[in-house]
Write a protein that binds this DNA or RNA. Sequence first.
DNA 1: ACCTGAACACCGTTCAAGT
DNA 2: ACCTGAACACCGTTCAAGT
Lengths: 203, 203
Amino acid sequence: MRPENESDDQPRSFIERARRAQIVRAAVETIAEVGFAKASFARIAARAGISAGLISYHFAGKDELIGQVAADIKEAMDRAIGERAAGAGSYLAALRAVIGGFVHYCAEHRAEMYALREIAANGGPVEQDDAVGQLAGMLRDGQEHGEFREFSPRLMALTLNAALEAVPRELYSRADTDAAAYADELASTFERAVRREGLRRRG
Amino acid sequence: MRPENESDDQPRSFIERARRAQIVRAAVETIAEVGFAKASFARIAARAGISAGLISYHFAGKDELIGQVAADIKEAMDRAIGERAAGAGSYLAALRAVIGGFVHYCAEHRAEMYALREIAANGGPVEQDDAVGQLAGMLRDGQEHGEFREFSPRLMALTLNAALEAVPRELYSRADTDAAAYADELASTFERAVRREGLRRRG
DNA sequence: ACCTGAACACCGTTCAAGT
DNA sequence: ACCTGAACACCGTTCAAGT
């Protein structure tokens, strides 16, 4: 009744990949325009110029479609932030690069991040554990290299991730919020939280 | 067609208040039991032993009902945490009391906090600005009394609030998470983020 | 294989009708 | 004033039928 490909039987056909990409694109635009609550299959299909039933044919359910939308947006964001953090000369600099990169990416990609937040704020399957795990790994490495004090990497990563997730809402709801200042405040907050004491003082 | 009382015309009648309370109670239990997505008016009404239409009669819409559910839960939580923080002898102690109080309240009121998180995670109108504003006020007071360093009280409050909101999920999804340790880690993290430097060292 | 459009079971809300 | 139950417009999903 519906193609359950990818990690199943055959790879997806060309037309299937094209349709899925088209539907995902229409979904992003629809969510960004009318919000998650009103982004029904009927609206998404109308925007894409297809029948609503076709979405169910290509996706196992609404969860899979929304999950794909979220995954696409996050993949682009992770790549952009990763590039910024790649050249950091220390774990402290890497932490600052991740925080600053995230805030600036939010400021520069409002539609996507707004859609992502709409999804996360409406029970979408955003699976934050990847992000938390990556942050925890970076923090643990920084500890082992002696840059960071002792703390639970997982709980600190969880706290940092939560702080980052709060950024888009504040950035978009308050027009006067200065992205650079927000990034500096956040970076300073977590620098103080993770660094060893008495090393040096700045800011 | 429906009573639009409270801050409108007459006060609510006794029977109206009783019905509203009964419906809110049934909604909390239903959300905690089957999750937000499946907590329909039909299910809530069935649990309360009334018709679904009666909910629409007493509440302007689903948003008002869910908002009332969230408000009731948060009011009880705020009172409990406020009691713990009332006796603090310093702003740093008050900060620690709020963080510790929140974590322990989460650990001790799983059903309510689970329902609240379900609501917040599904686009419910949880209005976090009250909490953020209160935290910001406390932080600002601590700055004016010279206990805290200079930072943006609003952005720090936003960051702290986000960190607190991440607590229930972690606490409930990982059975081995130690609430007391989580509270200590969080308190230590934010203590380091807000305090002046070089005053003293602990932990 | 790919797609449509009607049918289905559900949802929140409205409303005539009862008391 | 308070409440029911049918009707309504919507939703995501299914499925027979077309190509």
